[in-house]
Simulated scan of single mutants.
Amino acid sequence: MTLMFDVRALRAAPHLLPPQTNARIADPIRVRDETARDVAARERLLDAAMGPQRFEKSSERLREGRLAAQGLSVVATHGDTLVGTVRLWHVDAGGVPALLLGPLAVDSAHRAHGIGGRLMDAAIARAKADGHKAILLVGDAPYYQRFGFDAALTGKLDMPGPTDRARFLALELEQGVLAGAKGKVRPTGALHMRRRPSARKARRAA
């Protein structure tokens, strides 16, 4: 006879395990810092999840040619396979130092496992621990609201390009820090030595 168990329920209530079962249940997903060896797999995942149009987004203008914030690039792995990624980038939010989050992507075969939420929790916790005061992003409001992001906090800010205001969200890690933020969001991260040409420039050159 084969016994089937809900792993999440058993983690929450280990007393439900039968007496002969080991109470330690291995979690196959690992959330950790991104390393240089992850870069190629990360780019393949982003291409598969978002396609070439990801380089046309207004938020990409804030990442283009820049390095991500140090220590704030996080990946999720399943065994040796990279299945999730999120990074944060230094920006100036209308005179307030902040971070831009994104892109967040999870492999399509693993999207029912809560990986996106775990990456978000890790990224926010690390940003707060490092002393950052605010995080901006452009994304689906119903999803990101669960982490505290709110479009009301970006009302006086503008992205460098057309942006759906309902998707332009922010999270204050220090209450009230964005109260006086006004104007265009600008990139402030360190320049990447090997600047990758934008999709726009690549098409003009083709």
Rank of each mutant, 00 (worst) to 15 (best):
M1R: 11
T2A: 09
M4E: 12
F5D: 03
D6N: 13
A9H: 10
L10A: 12
A12G: 13
H15S: 12
P19S: 05
D27R: 13
D33T: 02
R37Q: 12
V39C: 00
V39P: 01
A40L: 11
R42I: 13
E43K: 03
L46C: 02
A48G: 08
A48V: 06
M50Q: 07
F55L: 11
F55I: 06
E56T: 13
R61M: 02
R63V: 03
R63M: 14
G65W: 01
G65A: 10
G65F: 03
L67W: 02
Q70P: 11
S73Q: 06
V74C: 03
V75T: 04
V75R: 01
V75A: 06
T77S: 12
T77A: 08
V83N: 07
T85G: 10
V91R: 07
A93M: 09
A93Q: 05
G94A: 06
G95D: 04
G95R: 03
G95E: 05
P97D: 13
A98W: 07
L99M: 07
L99P: 09
L99W: 02
L101N: 13
L101W: 12
P103K: 08
H110S: 04
H110G: 07
H110V: 09
A112R: 13
A112E: 14
I115R: 06
G116E: 01
R118A: 03
D121M: 10
A122C: 11
A123P: 09
I124V: 11
R126M: 07
A129T: 10
G131D: 00
L137R: 09
L137C: 03
G139N: 05
A141N: 09
A141L: 07
P142W: 09
Q145N: 14
G148L: 04
F149I: 08
L153Y: 03
L153G: 09
T154E: 03
T154Q: 08
D164S: 13
R165A: 15
A166Y: 07
R167G: 15
F168D: 11
A170M: 07
L173Y: 06
L178H: 10
A181G: 09
V185F: 08
G189M: 01
A190V: 15
L191V: 01
R195C: 06
R195E: 14
R196F: 06
P197L: 09
P197N: 00
R200E: 15
K201Q: 15
R204G: 06
R204F: 12
